[in-house]
Amino acid sequence: MFEQTMFYLFAIVSVIAALFVVAGKNPISCAIALIVTLGALAGVFVLQEAHFVATIQVLVYAGAIMVLFVFVIMLLNLGPEDLEKTPRFSRLKGAGGIFAAAGAALLAWNFVSYAARAARVGPGFGGLAQISQKLFTEYIIPFEAISAVLMAAVVGAVVIAKREL
């Protein structure tokens, strides 16, 4: 019962915060709302026995990535004044909203029928040991590839953002 209560709490928080991300006026507010969403989702992950994922969700996403966003927003010094000049939404607002809603409805409608109960999982599921076990044996090559991707991204970001291109 507790688990369900917590899930609905986190889910509602994350959806409301996501709505704010999409509709918010000030980028900083949006970024904060996104952090809230990510945090709430980290709670959902914990409820799903995904402890490791929840941890790096907080560390990498809510921590590192969102700091980067906020940093860039501050760097560009985008206040609400700058944004007042142009409308928040593009011309496609109406159509986009309807289509997104339709997409969500369709997705959800497909999933409602998928009512299988969650399987019982053993102790240590989603823990560091289990994930490391897999990551460094079965998934070692994608893991190394990801490191290369990250390295390339770092170099690329530096080059692109350099003042003299």
Partner: peptide, 22 residues
């Protein structure tokens, strides 16, 4: 040249596929 427009057309396609599947 509007990225939103391009994204929108992707969404249209995706919704169409989903509608078909549904």
């Amino acid at each position: 040249g509007q990225l939103n427009g391009y994204a929108f057309s992707i969404v249209v396609g995706m919704v169409a596929i989903l509608a078909y599947v549904a």
